[in-house]
Design a protein around this nucleic acid. Structure first.
Lengths: 207, 207, 207, 207
DNA sequence: GATGAATGAGGGTTCATTCAT
DNA sequence: GATGAATGAACCCTCATTCAT
């Protein structure tokens, strides 16, 4: 679907407000005001508030096809190295799209949105399989330990990020992250390193 | 504050609905209907919907004072053992109170709720300090490694749990968790074990 | 269903406006304003505009159970006399309830209102059967002619009334009916007499 | 006023929808969609929805100038015969144009449409006068009875037709009129005959 | 103390219309 | 001349809350 500039602007504002205030907590009037468009445009362009959310999700999710495979297939690099890169890539992507993830997490429980999240679930399944394959390869090559709950690795990865994100104020205070840039930096270095350590500790024999 | 039976019933229903549908997505009518009480009761007892949320949070949070210290001070047990117990206790408490945590996470961003969450933040700080003290003791005793980002341990702990919880459907499907009991069981064993392994891998020299 | 004074007032105003402006042409705001009640009361009492219409129809229709049978069974009176009374009664009732009939006629085509009009259709069928029985009796008793299309008698009866009503201005002008009272008088005498003549001319051998 | 093909198409669709759903119940979007033209065309061609209605009425009404006089002046035919033809012609015309009549009847009450209906009223007056003249001639010629309410004859004529039309479902069911053709046939024969009988019974000395 | 009735504000959506091209 | 985009007003309805009892 082609989206014009105004539609993209609406999506951007909607993403921001939905992430901050929740879907139910955001009124179309707020979106219209902040996007500086007439309120009727939202129905005009998207049909309804509900469909705006769907369009937002579909549009954003189409943009973050993961290239996990690119990393994994570089078999000239060590498993350990590739694991590091994989964690780093994951965090990068999630951080970049954290708002849309936040919306997904909120709305995931909603029994009315099953269909919309099919895309999300499919991608989730796919990513999991890619990771699983990689880890099993590493285990066969005796680079990775075997007593690990593979299916819970992604929760640890993404969960850590989001619990940090949800409690950002706490870390802003304690790490003195005064600007958005500081936060980005923190995610890219400290947080990523923490997760790389965690994954390596869980999976490899290094210390 | 003393709460009578009806008030407790309202809180129970509110907790359930706020967790499932979000604060904004839940109407006082729904709460009143599901709690089988008159609509006016909510304003009457709590003042407003907003204050109902506050009361809910305060009341629930007061009930889960962590006894981390009880675990930590048992210095006849090994650091490793105490770490295990600590993880287990944390997960137990969070799982038991997952609905209230879910509400907190949703509403934490809301700029209007600063005051309400003071309690949460205080407790968070306190728990962090207790954990930090314990880990630093362990590090001094050379039972724990030093190259670990202590402040990110709790995000990993709680985050893993919640990412599992938010994506429960995925795990229900893949682990065939057909009942609430199966899920509780899974949390108590597999998930807890995964996190214990993770913490031990990160902190101890064992393998 | 019990209706309180305010509900009855709303129904009265709704009946008037629906009859004058049509269902679609009337806004709940107009009804609220003219009934001097808060706009939210309409949803509060009736659920929706649609259900207000249904309630209105059901309530009004329940009130005009015809007592045609009472007339017909008085077999001490001549067929001719009973025919006269029957016409008179019909017109009285329709005139009294002309607004609700008008609404029914407008909305009868609407494919969404099938169920609501079941009552109307049932009553219509019943009235028709009563009339048919009476006329067939009269025919057997050789009081009535047989070359008459019984099923089209009611259209002639009601149709004449309503075409008069829809074009009331024309008659007001030509008959100088300056007040509601004049109109009522006209219906009761001239119009009723016209229809009695018509029915007698069609059915009896009198002249 | 000259109307191009698109304008005629719009009028045709508008007539259909206004008759089925009422003026207020029809949106210009519906008309535009069903007529397969751009929404803006309606304002562009007709100025407004209101003016579209006016144009529709004027245009359709200009097409049904009655040729009652043609019938009446054929004084070589009996009054009775001419009365029959007159009824038949009336019904034909009304049946052919029943949609526009339906619209007129709905909107006739509306106080905002006085001017639009001038044409209708004028025609009505004219038709009435023609009929009145004819009947008075017949009365003078002693072909027609004198104790008849001339002004109420047209209500009986048109009213019977429309009450049949408004309750068409009832007759479709009872006369098994399965197609539009069956209905047309019914109007042309049974209904017309009923009204001819009615008029003859009221006006002539025949039996 | 407790509650059904009632309220004003705001919700999402659709309306007829007009603008810019 | 014709049209897709855009608009402000109004639509019906539901919201959280308060009133009167």
């Amino acid at each position: 679907m082609e989206l014009n500039d105004k539609q993209l602007q609406i999506l951007a504002v909607a993403e921001k407000l939905f992430a901050e205030l929740g879907y139910a907590g955001t009124s179309v009037r707020q979106i219209a005001k902040e996007a500086d468009i007439n309120i009727a445009m939202i129905s005009y362009y998207f049909g309804s508030k509900e469909k705006l959310l769907e369009q937002l999700l579909v549009h954003r999710m189409s943009n973050f096809k993961f290239d996990l495979i690119d990393i994994i297939k570089h078999d000239d690099r060590s498993y350990s190295k590739r694991l590091e890169q994989l964690v780093s890539l994951y965090i990068q992507r999630i951080h970049k799209n954290n708002r849309i993830y936040r919306i997904i997490h909120s709305e995931l429980q909603s029994p009315t949105r099953n269909q919309t999240f099919e895309l999300y679930h499919n991608q989730k399944d796919e990513n999991f399989k890619t990771l699983e394959t990689f880890i099993k390869q590493g285990q066969q090559a005796e680079a990775f330990k075997t007593d690990v709950e593979i299916m819970l690795l992604i929760p640890t990865l993404i969960g850590t990020y989001f619990h940090f994100k949800y409690n950002q104020d706490f870390f802003v205070k304690n790490y003195k992250l005064d600007s958005k840039k500081d936060i980005d930096q923190f995610v890219e270095t400290t947080l990523t390193k923490h997760l790389q350590s965690t994954f390596k500790a869980l999976l490899t024999y290094e210390n």
